[in-house]
Every structure is written in structure tokens, then in C-alpha cells.
Amino acid sequence: MPYLALENIRKAYGPAVAVDRLDLGVEKGEFISLLGPSGCGKTTTLQMIAGFVEPTQGAIALDGIDLSRLAPEKRGLGIVFQSYALFPHMTVAANVAFGLEMRRVGKAEIRQRVEQALAMVGLADKGGRYPRQMSGGQQQRVALARALVIRPAILLLDEPLSNLDAKQREEMQLELRQIQRQSGTTTVLVTHDQQEALALSDRIVVMNQGRVEQIGSPFDVYERPGSAFVATFLGRTNTFSAEPTPRGLAVAGHVMMPGERPATISIRPEKVDFTTDGDGLPGRVLTRVFQGNHWLLHVETPGGLCLVIRPNDGRPLPGEGETVVLAFRARDASLSLAGSTP
């Protein structure tokens, strides 16, 4: 039995269903991300684990104990909120100490553990400050220290990095990952940022419209998307409708890969290459944009517009207006059969 188990969870607000038929097991020490667009039910799921929202149906168990009968304040979970929800009228140290006070930890131990927690997030000398005197990144660290200092059974992170700028976010990701590994705390992260989920998680749960689309390691979910939704939501993807011919599946009459039934081909832009020999999809380069470590090309083909990403590795690339032939390896593409809903 997994450490945290969600069984057949459903949450409905009147006729609106926020989460439906959700089954999820999280192992001890694991870092798992709930990823999906806004309104997909990921935050509701987190709120149900925390106890702020009651499931309409289904069971949540932690280490074999049913959580549903436990009030939120008895669950012993650490939560980092999107807005951080720091207590504005308390100093940083008092914020971090609050959970320990609630647990009636002795004064001396509180001081020591608060110091440790603040040192862990790199704010050892900022304990006397008030939250509003700190930057967004620092507030976020305080929130993390406050959640971790109580040694929670699970750490719940609700879009914790969404209010930071790109550079801070990248730093914080590395740090979060390191702190989580060090403390070994089982962690559930809610995010709409695929890059964040890919970078941090052991496993990703992709959600859409209240349902789980796919659960798997970041690599699996990215490389072998289980549905068209996952393919388009995670990373960018090109889709072509293909018809069967005696020689294989063809896009606009050009055979691209083996196959016998009409299907939609999904192929990541970085898996599309230019070819000079053999079959392929002819096209014309519309735009070519330099992005630093890679190039982004829009190619107009008879099967529709195709996005191509090529590394900036010194190889010559076609210029705007040049005609090219596009090809990809069959194993890099994923097929969904025409007529079947993704």
C-alpha cells in the first residue's frame, strides 16, 4: 500500500464536477507533481489532501490511516501556498515558530529548530524581519521553512513558484529539489508550469477537466504521451492527419511512416529534421528565429504548418524562403487513430 493513497476521489460543486474518479498512490519520499491547465482539478485535489475541501466521494489515507475523519489542523501536513500566506503581523522567526508552538514544543527547542530551518533556506540572519520587508523569493523561502519545520508527513506545494520571476524561479527549483532530497519529505506539487514539473518530479500526474490523463516519470510523459492532450499540453507538438497507402501512412501524399489506418501523427518539433535524400514532406521555410541555444523554424507544408527546432550546433540551416524536405523517425512519433477520441 502506498504512503499516501487517494481512492476513487470525486468532488462536485452542485452540477459542476471538479475532480472525478481520481486514483493516486504516492510513495514515501517521492516528489510528485499534479500538472494541468487551470481548472483541471489539481488545486482541488491538493485542498482535499490538506482537508480544506471535503471530497464528495472516495477515501484519502495517509500511512494506512483514514484522513477524512481528521480535522485539517490535526493532519500534520506542511503547506506552501501560492500567495505564501505568511502572517504579516509576525516576524519571520515567529512565522516559522508558529507550528511548533501549536505542537507545544519547548522554547529552547523551538529556537533551535527555527534557526535550523531558516539556515536551511538561506535566511539565517533574517529572523527578525517582517514579511513585507522581504522580496518575493525570500518570502517564498520563509513559507517553505515554516512548512518544513514541523517535520510534516507530506509537503504540499500549491503553485509555489508562480509569483517569482524567471531567474528566481530557476534558482528556487534547484533549491527546492535539493531541500526535498535532503529532508526526504514526501512532496505533492501543484503546478501549471510543465517545465517546473519536468524539472522537479519523480512522477508527474497530468490532469485535465477533473480526470487523470497520464501518470508517469517526466521522461515517459514527455516522450510517450498517453493522449493527444498530454502531447499538446507538455511541450510543443506538430500534428498531421495521415492516410494509409500501400507503402505506409502518408501526409498529403508523401509517405512518412508505417501504418495501415487513418491516424493523426504527433511529432515534437525537435524530432523533425531536414533530409536531402529519400522520402519526406516538402515545404518552404517561412520564418527562422534565433533563440540562443536553438533555432525555431516555421515550415509551410502541404499537410499544414510545421514547427521545427534545431540545436545551435554549428550545422548550416536553410534560410527563410528556401525549400526543404522534412522527415522524422517513426519511433519518435505517436499515433492516435482517426475517429477515436483522444
Binding site: 489542523e73 500566506a85 512548512a147
Partner: peptide, 10 residues
């Protein structure tokens, strides 16, 4: 959420 945070902390 500030209240929720206090609740979650026990």
C-alpha cells in the same frame, strides 16, 4: 489562505 496556513500548522 493565511487562516488555512495557521490551521495546517495545527
Amino acid at each position: 489562505r493565511i487562516e488555512d496556513a495557521a490551521t495546517a500548522l495545527g
